[in-house]
């Protein structure tokens, strides 16, 4: 509160939105993978057709999603390790709130990355639309 507004821990420079960026990327990846597979299997390859094209598309989505999550998670890591503070970051200071939001962002990024990989595993195990 006492810092100038351009200070990195000032409230005007914090955002709760960054917390949910990674889970949102997971959701977008999930939805896109589903839609791609559904349209591929129903309109392109047929119900017994091979997955080839959909596989490539989902592989690209996965790489893009993981890069996005990594960037968001890296930002979380940097805020988490701001200054000299250790978890649980529960002091009543703008610095600790800054670190706490960073830490929670980092954890959610890790979970989202795992969930994205889980979804991508599906096209490794499946060869065709059956």
């Amino acid at each position: 509160m006492s810092e100038p507004s351009h200070h990195p821990t000032h409230e005007s420079r914090q955002s709760l939105w960054r917390l949910i960026v990674s889970p949102t990327i997971w959701a977008a990846h999930f939805l896109l993978s589903y839609i791609t597979a559904a349209i591929w299997c129903e309109k392109v390859a047929g119900r017994d057709g091979p997955l080839t094209g959909a596989r490539v598309a989902i592989a690209i989505y996965t790489v893009v999603a993981l890069v996005g999550i990594a960037i968001n998670g890296w930002g979380g890591w940097r805020r988490h390790s701001y200054g000299a503070g250790e978890v649980p970051h529960d002091a009543d200071t703008p610095e600790d709130r800054h670190r706490f939001l960073g830490f929670a962002t980092l954890l959610l990024a890790a979970l989202s990355a795992i969930a994205v990989l889980f979804a991508a595993l599906v096209v490794i195990f499946f060869n065709d639309c059956r």
């Binding site: 949910i20 889970p23 949102t24 997971w26 959701a27 999930f30 993978s33 589903y34 597979a37 559904a38 299997c41 119900r47 997955l51 959909a54 989202s112 969930a115 889980f118 979804a119 595993l121 599906v122 096209v123 195990f125 499946f126 639309c129 059956r130």
Partner: peptide, 29 residues
């Protein structure tokens, strides 16, 4: 968040394509 991607696990036997089931199974796990 993940709950948005797992509700189809109530409908695994409704005849959806295997790949759709796989995605919802992944989120359920």
């Amino acid at each position: 968040f993940l709950s948005f991607g797992l509700w189809v696990h109530h409908m695994f036997t409704t005849g959806l394509p295997g790949i759709s089931l796989g995605l919802f199974s992944a989120a359920s796990e």
